[in-house]
Amino acid sequence: MNAAAIYAVEGVLLVSITSDITDTDIIDLQEALSKRIADTECRGVVVDISALEIVDTFVGRVLAQLTSVARLLDAETYVVGMRPAVAMTLVELGMYLPENHTALTLSHALDKMRQSGLIDGLRRG
């Protein structure tokens, strides 16, 4: 898959989505990410959507699902890099992404996860 890539960064999984991602790619991503969470036992996921020029109801729904699946696997998801115009459009659509934590940037998300203990002492138990 080249429309999205998953990297292990500072103890979290960083998901980078490119602008030309298709609906099929994003469903593949959901599957790949779930496996990586289980394999790595990581507790934090950061989804970087800064390359996305738009987020429509389909992508919004997939982001929510991704977060819900990750949560069942004991990982919290942060969506980062949302463009201001995308945020305004999502609110007009009535999509507030209540399932997702958001942070402006990756480093903000990492700070927040450190504070909530999701990064240090990554391994469970």
């Binding site: 020029e53 738009i54 115009a85 007009e92």
Partner: peptide, 10 residues
């Protein structure tokens, strides 16, 4: 503008 483009493309 970026906002108007984002809204209509969405």
């Amino acid at each position: 503008s970026e906002l108007m483009q984002t809204r209509f493309v969405t």
